[in-house]
Simulated scan of single mutants.
Amino acid sequence: MAKETRPIMGRVVAITGGARGIGKATARALVREGARVAIGDIDVDLARQTAEELGSGTRAYYLDVTDRASFERFLDEVERDFGTIDVLINNAGIMHVNRFVEEDDAAAERQIDINLKGVIIGSKLFIRRAIERGRSGHLVNVASQAGKAGYPGIATYCATKHAVVGLSQALALEYEDRGIDVSCVMPVVVDTELGQGIRDARGFKKIKPDDVAREIVAALRRPRFNVHVPKSVGPVGKIIQLLPERGQRLAAKLFGTDRLLLDAIGRREEYERRAARSEPSRSGQSALPAGSDVRLPEGVAEEQKSEARR
């Protein structure tokens, strides 16, 4: 039975990694629908700029998704400013492209920490709050088509996204009777910084962040678990999964996905440098102007004041 349509107007939505890319596009789409939006990002300067650009009361907050205390503070501050959070969108993520044995161990750890650990922490905190308050809620985990198949050149990234898909499936079943909806978003390559240097696959062009945002809004309006972007990749993927292993490999060669990411190696220097700096650092926590609508935990704020005096 199809679930009833739910209004977006007035709902409180928290988005991780909301300063750019899919997160920013989703925030924009939700603001247009009348949602009250909070964006969390480790790049607080960019988060502030995004919040100011979107307007309509959008607020930005410092958030390190890999740090449970930081995530807890983020949710606390959003609820203090907006009220109970109705929707959490776990969007923050990074992707390093390289041959597996040449991938730096630190790059692998960053992807696991941000793409998987961050989603686990956020999901747990959000669901726990919903249960304690006896309220329904909607959890949206942004995975990838890389969570449904394996692609050479992004083995670790695939591992993290497969884990997010499995986690989301388990949570959807585990908490359905508590009134908590779970959606798993699985786009193809998106035309963002993360998709830098990656060409189109045969039959599937890179999509825009707004395409993903549109489907996320649709899933919030009429809840569903599988959110494939574009929708056509869902049926195609199911057909490929029914093929024997040899057939799946032939399909990868046919669509060019056996080389798609490998061919991008060496063409993503700018993104790779930024992703390598994705851990919390002073450069990502620069002092904010007076009156800024960015909320920082006290420890970070004090560190910034001390740094500014040096």
Rank of each mutant, 00 (worst) to 15 (best):
T5L: 07
P7W: 00
R11A: 07
R20K: 15
G21C: 12
I22W: 06
V31A: 12
A35K: 00
V37M: 01
A38D: 03
D41R: 08
D41S: 15
D43A: 15
R48S: 08
E53C: 05
E53Y: 07
S56N: 13
T58W: 00
L63V: 15
F71H: 01
R73N: 15
E77H: 13
V78P: 01
G83M: 03
G93F: 09
I94D: 05
H96C: 03
R99G: 01
F100V: 03
V101M: 07
E103Y: 02
D104Q: 13
D104N: 15
A107N: 10
L116E: 01
L125N: 01
L125P: 00
I127D: 00
L139E: 06
L139S: 02
V140A: 05
N141P: 01
I154A: 08
A172P: 00
S183R: 08
C184W: 06
V185N: 04
V185K: 00
D191R: 13
T192E: 09
G197H: 13
R199F: 04
K205M: 06
D211V: 03
A213N: 08
I216M: 10
I216E: 04
L220P: 01
L220T: 05
P230G: 12
L243A: 12
Q248N: 05
A251C: 01
L254A: 11
T257L: 01
L262P: 06
A264M: 10
I265E: 05
G266E: 12
R268P: 04
E269S: 15
E272V: 12
R274F: 14
R274W: 14
A275I: 06
S281T: 05
S281V: 09
P289W: 02
A290T: 13
L296D: 03
E298P: 11
V300G: 13
K305D: 10
